[in-house]
Every structure is written in structure tokens, then in C-alpha cells.
Simulated assay, not measured.
Amino acid sequence: MSFREIWGNEQVKQILRLSLGKGRLPNSLLFFGPAGTGKLKTALTVAKALNCLERTDDSCDRCDSCLRIDRGQHPNVRVITRDKNREQIVKEQIEELNSLATLRPWGRGRLVFIIDEAERMNETVANSLLKTLEEPRSFAYFILVTEDLQLILPTIRSRCQVLRFNPLSQEEVERALVDRGFPAERARLLAQSSEGNLESVLETDWDEFLSGRNQAWLIFKQLLEAGEVEDFLSLVAGRARKDALSGFRETLKFFSVFFRDLLVVLAGRKELLLNPDLGPELEQVSRLVSAERAGQGVRLMEDYLGRLKKNPNLAIMGNELTIFFREIRND
């Protein structure tokens, strides 16, 4: 995969291509940003560019070196990640990296060490990497990848060029899906619910997604039409927190889409519906909601989705939302 095949974060890719083309790429890089924004794919593309036999600013994706890296078989490129049965990257893995980083690379290429989930190095393990980052050999490059920059030791951050990866826009996700052969209507709906995470969307099972949407629509109608809250509150009651958080997040993402579709119906633009198969039901429900309230609903769902990233009290959030739906019905 070359830079042009990685969607989004054009500024980051431009910085990397210019640095590679001029032979001025820093030996230590730190990529951070949300899941699904292409951080690891970009790191591997940098590794291919540093070892490519035909190009210097990108991977050609056809030379022997690029193909070896794609297969995970190139002697110059190592991806370090925690073992499946461990929560952390262990000291032995970094000690091996430190040793390998002193050896000459194979052929005319460069050594590249990619540390995925770099936040899973504890302080002792991270400190064992410091000297290698401080005094790298000219032919050795290190790329640390993380979702949370604050979990990386300041001493590690200060020795790397830090590059931020932003979530993809809905338009970028939609174009990427259409480019991969998704039907346009399906791509629009998936993109609206993606939160900028293209990789997660690409792994989505459509039948499961549609089943989740239908369940969320049923709960949405229950709240609006009859004020029935039991099914909605059951999303967070009596469940393990991880499951409750996941289920609540997915439901709020669908609620945001439903409110958006209600705005479209109220504006008389049904051709823009993200859920055209729900058109007749949306039209019926729209009689209960003003455009102002539907707009508030979109903003409130987006606000709550942001709050879910900060470990909130789900029961309180659930009760707040039932009050909001009750206020809509009482208007």
C-alpha cells in the first residue's frame, strides 16, 4: 500500500513524502490519533519507502523489497507489539530491538522498527528504549504508534517527531467505501456511523449492522411515540461495563442518524435520507418532532458520544436522554 492508497490525513502524508524525498526523515517518529486513521498502514508505507528499490518518497508496491514487507518477510523491518496473552510490551522485546538496531541493514535499505500500541510500554520498558532513540545509527528508524499521546513518557515524546492523525471526514469514509465497491446508499449510512474510523467500517458485517440499526430504530420509536424507556435503559442496566458502553455508543450513533433523517424529512428532501428504507416510518415519526428539536437531537447525540470517551456514568446519561425524549413528546 502506497501513500496515495491511504485515505485521509493528507498533510501528514505530505510531510512524510517530502522528508523521504529529501533524505531528511527523522530517525524517530511518533504517530498518534484515534483508531482507524491509518497510523500503522502509514508506518509500514514509510518502512517500504525507506527500503524501496525504485522510489525514495513512496513505495512502488512492485519491487522485491516492497513485496517482502507486505508479506512480513523483510529482514530490515520489524513490527513490535504485545503478545496476545500479555497486557504489556515486555522488556525483552525492547532489549532485542536495541540489539538489532546496531546491526547493518540488508542490501541498500534501512532498518525500521515499528512499535504498535506504544502506550503499552511501562516506564521501565520505555526507559530501556531511550538510549537507542537518543543515539540512533544513521540507518535505523523507529516509528511509535499510539492512540493516546498522554500515555507516552515525556522523555520518549521529546525524542520523536510527533505527527497527529485525525479521524477521516464522513465524505472521505464514504468515498473510500464507494472506491472499494460498496453501493452508494450503504456507503453513506456506514460513513455517517463511522466516527471517522475507516478500518472499523471495512470490518463491519452488513447484516449485523442492519440488525443493530433496526433494534435502535425500534427503541427510538418507543421513546418518541409511547415514552417506553425499558428497552433503552436496559442497554446500561445489569451488563458488564464494557458491553454496556459499546451497546450504548452504537445506539447513540444510530439515534444521531435518525435525528438527521428527521431533519431531512421535515425539510422535504427525502432524496437525502440515509435510511431510505425507513422513509414511510420516518415521515410518520416526523409529525411528532419539530425541526428545532430534531437539530437539538443531532447535537445532543454528538455531545454524548464525545462524553462517552471520558468514562461517564451511563445510568445518569440514560436518564438524561429519556427526559429529552419526554420533552419532545410534550412539546
Rank of each mutant, 00 (worst) to 15 (best):
F142K: 03
A176G: 09
C60Q: 09
Q150I: 05
G38D: 11
G107T: 10
L153T: 03
R24Q: 03
P276G: 15
E5L: 12
I219H: 00
L262D: 06
D231R: 15
E320F: 00
F113Y: 12
N85V: 05
K253G: 15
M301E: 04
G318T: 09
L305R: 11
I69W: 02
Q150P: 01
S128A: 09
A244T: 02
L190E: 08
R86G: 00
R78E: 11
L288V: 02
S200E: 14
R82Q: 12
D58I: 02
K221P: 04
R164V: 09
K48D: 01
I114W: 00
D207K: 11
L177K: 08
L190F: 06
L202A: 13
Q150W: 07
E96H: 04
D261T: 06
Q296V: 04
K13R: 10
L282P: 05
K270R: 14
S169C: 03
E208T: 14
T146N: 04
R137C: 06
R4D: 14
I115G: 01
G23E: 08
E230Q: 05
E185I: 12
E203K: 10
S211D: 13
V173R: 09
Q93T: 11
L29R: 05
L282A: 09
S193Y: 04
N166P: 02
N214W: 07
Q296W: 02
R108Y: 14
K242N: 10
A47P: 01
Q215D: 10
R213D: 10
A240N: 10
R180Y: 00
S256L: 02
N330S: 13
L300H: 02
C66Q: 02
R213V: 02
F209G: 10
R82Y: 15
N166Q: 13
N76T: 12
E271G: 14
R71C: 02
R137D: 03
F232K: 07
E283N: 05
T42H: 05
L235I: 06
Q192N: 11
V79T: 05
Q73P: 04
V12G: 11
L282F: 09
C160S: 11
M317A: 07
R175K: 14
V265P: 13
D303L: 07
K253N: 08
F182A: 06
I323Q: 09
I115H: 00
L272D: 15
R71W: 09
L16R: 01
G181M: 04
L189V: 08
R4A: 14
D61V: 07
F259D: 00
I156G: 09
S2T: 14
F31I: 06
Q215M: 10
N127H: 00
V289R: 04
N275Y: 05
A101R: 08
S158M: 13
R159I: 15
D331F: 11
R55K: 15
E95Y: 10
L274N: 01
V178P: 08
